[in-house]
C-alpha cells in the first residue's frame, strides 16, 4: 500500500532538520507497529520520502510524506500512527496512491508561502514587488560548492502580492535548481528579517494547465490529472 500523508509541521517541531524529521517519522511508524516496506539490497532502508525539504525553522501546513507499506493498513492503524507522532506533526489527511505513480518529490511543481507584514512593511515591500514583477529578468547569484552561478528567478515567481489579510503571498516554483527559495524573494523585498515568520501554506503538482494540491489531483497509473471539482490555480 502506498500513501501520501499530508501533515503539518507546526511550532513545536519547526526546528527539526530534514534528517531529524525523517527519523521522527521512522520512529513513530515503529511505535505504531506499521509494516513499512524496505528497499532490497545490502543496506535496506524504509521506502519513504518527503515531497520537498523545508528550511529549518519554518512552519508548514502543507508537508507530504510519500510512503510504502507491505500491506493495506486499517483505519485503526492509521489512527494509531496519528496518535503517536510528536506534538506539532499533525496528520491532516492521507490518500492511497497507485504504486506506479512517480515519487511525489519529482511531481511537486510549486509551493505557496505566506508572511504576515505590518503596515509599514507592506508599504515598503509593495514598491519592491511591483519592480520585481515588472522586470523581464531578475538575476540572483547563488553560491555553491562548485562555484557561483547566476540564475534568472523571474519566470519562477508565479504570483507575488500583498493580500487583504496583511500577508505577503508567494507562489513559487520549487525544487532544487528549477525553483526559487522563499528566502531569496524575502531578500529581494528587503524582508530578510521575516524568515522565521514564513509559513508554507501549499504544495502543488502540475496537472495540465493547472496547479493542484496532492490531496486533490486525480491519479491514474502514472498520470497526474486535474480534478475539476477541487480548488486549483491556472498557470
Amino acid at each position: 500500500m502506498r500513501l501520501w500523508i499530508h501533515f503539518v509541521k507546526d511550532a513545536p517541531v519547526r526546528f527539526l532538520s530534514h534528517l531529524d524529521l525523517m527519523r521522527a517519522w521512522q520512529r513513530a511508524i515503529r511505535r505504531a507497529r506499521l509494516p513499512v516496506l524496505y528497499s532490497a539490497g545490502f543496506n535496506p532502508h524504509p521506502k519513504m520520502s518527503f515531497a520537498s525539504a523545508l528550511p529549518v525553522g519554518v512552519i508548514s501546513d502543507a508537508e507530504y510524506l510519500d510512503i510504502q507499506f507491505e500491506r493495506t493498513l486499517s483505519d485503526i492503524e492509521l489512527e494509531c500512527l496519528a496518535a503517536t507522532v510528536p506534538q506539532g506533526m499533525t496528520i491532516v489527511s492521507q490518500r492511497t496512491v497507485p504504486p506506479e505513480t512517480p515519487a511525489l518529490m519529482s511531481l511537486v511543481f510549486a509551493s505557496e508561502w505566506r508572511v504576515p507584514l505590518s503596515q509599514s512593511e507592506q508599504l515598503a515591500a509593495a514598491e519592491h514587488i511591483s519592480l520585481l514583477l515588472a522586470s523581464e529578468s531578475v538575476p540572483v547569484l547563488r553560491r555553491g560548492k562548485k562555484g557561483d552561478k547566476t540564475v534568472d528567478i523571474r519566470p519562477l515567481v508565479l504570483r507575488l502580492e500583498i493580500t487583504d489579510s496583511n500577508e505577503l503571498f508567494m507562489l513559487l516554483c520549487s525544487g532544487g535548481d528549477g525553483g526559487v527559495k522563499p528566502r531569496e524573494i524575502l531578500n529581494l523585498l528587503r524582508l530578510e528579517h521575516k524568515e522565521f515568520c514564513l509559513c508554507k501554506t501549499g504544495a502543488y503538482l502540475k496537472a495540465g494547465d493547472f496547479l493542484q494540491s496532492p490531496d486533490n489531483v486525480v491519479l491514474k497509473g502514472k498520470e497526474v490529472m486535474f480534478n475539476a471539482e477541487k480548488d486549483c490555480y491556472k498557470l
Binding site: S17, A28, G88
Partner: peptide, 10 residues
C-alpha cells in the same frame, strides 16, 4: 542545533 533545546521530545 536548536533541537537540543526543545524539551518536547516523545
Amino acid at each position: 542545533k536548536p533541537t537540543r533545546y526543545l524539551g518536547n521530545e516523545i
